[in-house]
Design a protein around this nucleic acid. Structure first.
Lengths: 205, 205, 205, 205
DNA sequence: AATGAATGAGCGTTCATTCAT
DNA sequence: TATGAATGAACGCTCATTCAT
């Protein structure tokens, strides 16, 4: 007899709507009214499901981080070698082709800017970045190990690749023609391979 | 009899104040009141010297682009070889150490986000990025030529390096410890050198 | 469950408040704050029900035009002869006696001035005037026909009478004693009757 | 040795500039900056020659009233009969053909609206209207006397004609095609003549 | 759960007026 | 006289948030 709570579904709709509006209008101009309209909901409902506008943003950040994780795991399922896994990761991050991806990428750029100025957003953003860094670092280390190289430089290399991907997001969103997102995957992979090959051989201890 | 115009000086002060406030609060929260306070001016005066808040932002973008240009030329003056020049460029872009640099870097990240959503900002941002790309591309081509390599990949390599630097700006501003800006210069240089060495030799035709 | 919309009622209140404030302070000085206070509403609410201040003004113009129309129809209901109808019209337009009328008249004068400088207001103002002109023209033609006169001059006469009424509004609002509004009805009627009598007889064809 | 004061010339320029700007933008939007630009003067200079913006407006009203007076006297110079004089008056008031006239007419409409809400403007506006009324009344009385009619109705008739002219200004400024200013002169003259002819004969006492 | 009206602080911008030069 | 920078109050408008229904 009790009503079935649909809070989780509603929250997801709202988060999704914020992502969509943020992609083109930024966070400040993503008004509650605009998000509600995008989601097809009454404005008042948003504050029923979320305490504040910032809470929607924070939820979006974790939501996007989770989405990236799932996407990688999905693509990685088919991979067998460490190199395949690395490739799968880069593909999951920057090898996005369709329109929905452009929205996600633009939204992520906006999130990055908000992370600079909002401590609460920064916290969850940082956590997401740190997780990425760790994952990528591990993937690179595995590649290095496979080729009998020392793994000391894997974290620095991961940071460089991460920066390249984030920068590609930015350039892809704010310019046209100069740097398509998809192109970044190749660049990153090439950089990774060059660096792996250039790494010193691990001596048997 | 008549009063001397001081518009140029005032405009510079205001632009500088916007940069400072944007670095920590973003563009939307960089209110006219806040900028005026930072500049030590009356709020109304800002609209005497600028038509709109957006005009201040656009001026800041070109101002920062010019600053980068001058900084490179200054550092490049001492350089002799193509490799030195490349190094000087990367140093000018990401080898910033002092506090003022962090402000510039953070402001540039905010500008990048605004470029996504404001056409007028995007235009001038794009122009700045294109100029950088061309310059860096030329520097890389010179390095390639010096080592008798084909220069076909120089533009793609330049784009990758540019993305890496922009991404480093973002990560440096929004996270701590993960990726210091200064570190990006080394990464970029290493990537450049690896790529140059890996480029095929130019055959005498 | 859901709340009932009350937009139409609120819009009417706001329009009414604008009319009241405009009558004594003009359009520019009829600030959103002042209108809100007059209506007993929070200032922000005005922009919830209207997109802009100008939209309130445009709504007021059509509202007043409609009111005039209704007022005429009401008075005209008792009329029987063409001359009675003409009299009813003039009465409805300028034979206003009570205090509410003075407010309407003054507001209309302000609207006239705004129509000169705001294209959007001019458009709806012009439409209202054109409707009046057509109606008055028809009423005059009927009077002329009843007396077997040619109706060729009816439109010019209508324009002259309309001008006289608008001018009476202006003089009644801006001066005291020189031209009471109510007096204009008599003048206009006299002018109409003289003109009708002076019109040439329609010859049987 | 002493500098030749040019205050009067400057004041005239400023008044003229206000008239020009008011005609299209109204009084509130006729900013000091805009008036100064129209006059080709520095903004600060306006408050050197006038105490306030309102003082410029008041000066404009008297200036326009004087201009009308001079214009009538000029045209009236050639007139011989009372009827010629009446005709000359109406011609001077509404028989304006060129472009400068449209500006004056529109400015006068704006002044009329300001007179409703500003006591100080109303005062001088009222004085101008009263002068007009007296003059027109006298002209009509002369026409009536010439035809041996009683002059009792001359003032009421004058008021009606004045209203018609003011209304014609309004309609000519805010609408197009419905009522050209120039047309009002004929209407008014016809109305005057009909009324004069209809006035009862003065009996020899 | 859901609606949509209501609130009021704060935004960018305008502008009459003042004033140092 | 003349200039143009400077001031600050007030404007129309936006918007996150609250709340009665």
């Amino acid at each position: 007899m009790s009503r079935k709570p649909n809070t989780e579904a509603r929250r997801a709709e709202i988060i999704r709507a914020l992502q969509s509006v943020m992609a083109t209008h930024g966070y400040e101009k993503a008004t509650i009214q605009a998000i509600a309209k995008e989601a097809g909901l009454a404005p008042g409902l948003l504050h029923y499901h979320f305490k504040s506008k910032q809470e929607i943003l924070v939820s979006l950040v974790t939501s996007l981080a989770d989405y990236g994780q799932r996407r990688f795991e999905q693509i990685a399922g088919k991979a067998e070698s460490p190199m395949d896994l690395l490739n799968a990761y880069l593909e999951a991050r920057v090898g996005l082709g369709d329109g929905a991806a452009a929205e996600i990428v633009a939204a992520w750029v906006m999130i990055g800017a908000e992370a600079v100025r909002q401590a609460e957003v920064r916290e969850v953003y940082q956590r997401a970045i740190a997780t990425e860094l760790e994952l990528l670092s591990e993937l690179l280390a595995n590649c290095l190990r496979e080729r009998q190289r020392v793994t000391t430089g894997s974290r620095d290399l991961a940071a460089a690749l991460l920066a390249m991907m984030e920068g590609a997001y930015q350039l892809a969103s704010a310019t046209s023609g100069i740097m398509p997102v998809g192109y970044a995957a190749q660049s990153a992979l090439r950089h990774a391979m060059l660096s792996i090959d250039a790494a010193p051989l691990a001596t048997a201890s």
